[in-house]
Design a protein around this nucleic acid. Structure first.
Lengths: 207, 207
DNA sequence: ATAACAATAGCCCAAACAGGTCATTTTATA
DNA sequence: TATAAAATGACCTGTTTGGGCTATTGTTAT
């Protein structure tokens, strides 16, 4: 069974090229292709949606939430020429699973579709760079200084809801050791359970 | 001129494999390969550095800032088996240009090196997904609506770190009832422990 | 060299928790 | 007035956690 793709792209030439490209691989098939968000509502859900931003009528970015609520399982990849921070971040905040540029080499576009279909996210390298840039100035002035690196690491894993045993597996140390670290964390944070530790860590941005 | 690569990887077998892989492409060459951060300081700057996280001595993540200040032009790609949020975000905050998993197919590893060398960033799809997840806080407002008022109330108390028994006392209902509510909350939030419930509630502002 | 700290690992016990199934009552609303 | 949803309560089982200990190995700083 091939991955069924929906295309929303108003530039007819590029839309045609995409269709030909996709049709030339047996793993992919074009379920439908249209030129506006409004037309897309009349279509059945695809596995993966290739969505342009600049469209006649509603913008592709603004349509993401509605696509998601109508067809929660349909993955959404933005395929656009826009590579500015504003559009990238808006798309991501609205829930896009991928953001790739039209100038991307055809095989890479198909790679991205495959990756997103498999549950990953796909970002063109230059887009990925801008996304990562958002995290650099962080440097979170942490009050956690009294927590050792190992303790911070374990607290972060607890905050992800991972059990003591799983943390031990992940860090390649014994369960006992993890439990000791947890006890020390509790003492430093003045809490008595994982739920409290998670609350404190998240509320005070220790993680 | 080929892209000169530095490798810091303590697992000798994997290090060898990487060297062979890279050597088999004319566009890439291994400038040096060593097994610890400490050894890496003795090497000359590479174009792109493949850096493991779990290493004897200093962790690859902690070494990123020093690599960056010593050799600002050297790109850094984390190449690791760790795919948890904590390590990913730490690496990004510290300034990594890429984060890919060791299980990545060899051609994709080389793709990533090329992309990073060209000024982009490279993220394995599953890593990209976790990074993007950081930007969608809203979206889940809907999800809270299916929690009943009583469930929200109890979730809030759990988030304060109060035990099941104490919650029962506070609400003048039996411990069993509280436990049933908690079970229902777990099912609706798709979690399996209080720590996870607190994390989800706080991260998605359900409380 | 010695003290302090971090990270590792183990033991025991009691309390808390998670998962499963079932049943009753109240409340809202179609 | 059916009926669906919410809130209440219970039993059983096995797992996880929290708190109390001790102890070894490194590393760091005095």
């Amino acid at each position: 069974m091939s991955i069924r793709i929906g295309i929303v792209e108003d530039h007819s030439e590029f839309r045609q090229s995409l269709c030909f490209l996709i049709a030339s691989y047996s793993d992919f098939s074009v379920l439908w292709a249209c030129s506006s968000v409004e037309d897309a509502w009349k279509q059945e859900p695809a596995d993966v949606l290739l969505l342009d931003i600049n469209l006649p009528g509603q913008s592709g970015i603004d349509a993401i939430p509605e696509f998601r609520s109508r067809f929660p399982d349909q993955k959404i990849i933005m395929l656009t020429i826009l590579e500015d921070e504003y559009h990238i971040m808006q798309a991501i905040r609205n829930g896009a699973d991928g953001y790739i540029l039209k100038k991307t080499a055809p095989p890479r576009i198909l790679d991205s579709i495959q990756q997103v279909y498999e549950g990953g996210a796909a970002l063109t390298p230059m887009v990925a760079r801008q996304v990562l840039a958002f995290f650099k100035p962080a440097a979170t002035v942490q009050d956690t200084n009294h927590l050792t690196p190992r303790e911070k690491e374990i607290l972060a894993l607890i905050t992800e809801g991972i059990s003591t045993d799983k943390i031990a597996d992940k860090l390649f140390i014994s369960t006992q050791t993890v439990r000791n670290h947890i006890k020390n964390i509790y003492e430093k944070l003045q809490v008595h359970s994982k739920a409290q530790a998670v609350a404190k860590a998240l509320k005070e941005k220790l993680v």
